[in-house]
Design a protein around this nucleic acid. Structure first.
Lengths: 244, 244
DNA sequence: CGCTAGCTTGATCTCACTCAATAGCAGTGG
DNA sequence: CCACTGCTATTGAGTGAGATCAAGCTAGCG
């Protein structure tokens, strides 16, 4: 009963009975070291992974060896549930930090789909939640400037970590290098450094190493035009994600 | 039996029996005029729409009145099937041209989900196909320069229109203004104009008004780093999408 | 102690934006 | 028939945000 504790305090409307069903579907847990690839683009897979601890990325490699993040996962997220349906993914999945994942064989997911309409809908829902976040990432790249993008990303992570009690609303740990933040926001590490200084000097937030401290959440949210609707949080969490 | 003819020649592995089931789920068809909003962000909906004819957009409005496309739909696409699961969307859906859509009440989709596991999986699949395209749009914005982005977009549309026999592999109609292409690629209309000229002068493709003529598909694909894997086309269509 | 990875800061450059002017074309009405 | 309006596309000139290149700096760690 311990593995899926992370699903207890989140915003998914999953009942404890359903959590038990999922818990029973876990074949085993795995640990991946930082940087390790979990799923490679184009390779057929037969299991899906739920992230229990750490951070994982979805990223697309470019021909010139760069990579770009198209998703970032926190504990409680299925990192590749869409592989249950797509079978082959259009992107890589990798561990950003050392992580622990729960392994769900697709056979057991098929059993759930055949027997439990409501839980199936919840699983479908979380795959579409990923999609909603991806759309917002498009918006972020298309409409915001460098510092707004970083601010928006920091707001998103704050909101998502709030939902799993990994942020107190103002301070959270984000074990990412400035280079990796750049891979999210499509900026060079050099410019991320400048942007973080600017956000610090504007008294919006203070990012030092892995520690993110939001100094003025309301101002940061407004600066980044952050609206957490796309995260489908419960009302209380959504409120905390935008103001004190 | 006419409405869903568009599903006949595409890449979805939907049997004719399943197409019949879908056909019977159509409550009615609607016509929307160019520019008309079909779904507004945040408003609960009870039907989903399948695009039968014309082009539709998914877009996010910015606070300053700009809009950015996060998706573009061609005939045969469900434009908001994800609303069946999410209930409220995180973005708007609008008609780009005059369009005809088939209306699927969510009740009938629920009936399908309760009774037809395989078809449900196909529906889930197409919602995830949208997500795969959205990820590629992130990649496009993050990794490609202006002319590569436009080239990539033109390759994508060629591939998708090939799948529904609306492109012969080199020439297709794309009723979009340069401003709208800019909303896809995050460029100003002025720069889109320059980019199209550049692509024309490089003998890659010739875009005039609504007519797109690809002069050298192999070169265009290579220039844009276009790999159609994310579209999950059948092998034959995928091959035609990248070369003669 | 030296090595390496990550961060910081400065100088320069460039791609795409902004502003602005012009042309083409369709529709509309006198 | 032409004049007028509005939308779309084109082209030029100037500007700026963020990239690139390069040099130090800091801190953890064998």
């Amino acid at each position: 009963m311990l593995t899926l504790n992370v699903l207890r305090n989140n915003n998914l409307a999953i009942s404890s009975a359903e959590r038990d069903v999922l818990e029973k579907s876990i074949e085993r847990t795995r640990t991946l070291r930082s940087g390790q690839l979990a799923v490679r683009q184009g390779v057929e897979v037969e299991v899906s992974l739920l992230l229990v601890d750490g951070l994982m990325t979805r990223h697309i490699d470019t021909p010139d060896g760069q990579r770009h993040l198209v998703g970032l996962h926190v504990p409680g997220d299925f990192v590749d549930l869409h592989a249950y349906v797509l079978k082959k993914l259009d992107h890589d999945v990798a561990a950003l930090t050392e992580v622990r994942v729960a392994v769900f064989p697709h056979e057991t997911l098929e059993a759930i789909q055949a027997s439990n309409v409501r839980l199936t809908r919840r699983l479908w829902f979380v795959t579409l939640l990923d999609a909603a976040r991806e759309r917002q990432w498009i918006y972020r790249l298309a409409s915001l400037n460098a510092s707004q993008r970083v601010a928006h990303f920091l707001c998103e992570m704050n909101a998502r970590l709030l939902a799993i009690n990994a942020s107190d609303g103002h301070i959270y740990m984000l074990p990412m290098t400035q280079n990796e933040i750049g891979e999210v926001c499509s900026l060079t590490n050099v410019h991320v450094s400048r942007v973080l200084r600017q956000l610090r000097e504007s008294n919006l937030c203070n990012v030092r190493g892995s520690r993110v401290q939001i100094l003025d959440l309301g101002a940061l949210v407004s600066y980044a035009s952050f609206d957490p609707a796309y995260l489908f949080l419960n009302a209380e969490t959504a409120a905390r994600a935008v103001a004190t």
